[in-house]
Amino acid sequence: MIYSYFPGCTLKAKAQDLDTYGRKAAEALGVTLEEIPEWQCCGAVYQQATDEIATKLSSVRALNAAKEKGQPLVTICSACHHVIKRVNEDMKENEDMILRANNYLKFDEPYHGETEVIHYLEMLRDKIGFDKIKEAVVNPLKGKKIAAYYGCLLLRPSKVMQFDDPENPTIIEDFIKAIGAEPVVYPFRNECCGGYQTITDKDQSDRFANKVIDSAKMKGAEMIITACPLCLYNLKQNTRDIPVVYFTELLAEALGVKEQEG
């Protein structure tokens, strides 16, 4: 299986683990992730205003690059996934956006949302299958109680994201089971970590992160995993006694490829 891959800025800098382990694990599972050439930052925020276009063009370029290769586009970072998925939805439905974006970008052939955007976790669930991953696991993380932290961007708005049940998601829990560990379900797994306030109001994001951590600990979690660099940062900043790691790191560990040369 060969997929186009959009790593995004953070995965090239502060969240290299998320990227490196993701690539290693994919390879171990027989998936080739082809990084889109000359991709540009997604902008980290999806602008909701109906007349907004400029901030969405970089996503359209990435989407069109995947379309030209005839490959689904895989993302890992929650923010990139959120932005690119929503822009793609706009490129399917919003006539005004379709017209203006295509007029501006002038591709060989207009882009109409043809690319399938999937998050790495969706690739594991829908393309590879958690039962296949279970078979490929060489170091099952037996007995480890792991809490999935979803945050906001993967799940909501569910009408567009179509990622999982927004109030009762199971995809990361199923992933945790597949790598042999025990999922811990806790009430704040789909509440906000305060992410976007990190720069402007750190106290606030700290308070939110603590709520998430306390909620996970209350249910007996020994570790928290996430797909979002900013969530990871906020949670890590506020805890010393419980590790917070990227899901790709655990996957690489379970598949026995964590220490391999990348």
């Binding site: 953070t10 969240a15 980290a44 970072c77 990190t198 900013l230």
Partner: peptide, 8 residues
């Protein structure tokens, strides 16, 4: 992470 600055 870079995303925090970009987003802000």
């Amino acid at each position: 992470p870079q995303q925090a600055i970009t987003a802000a």
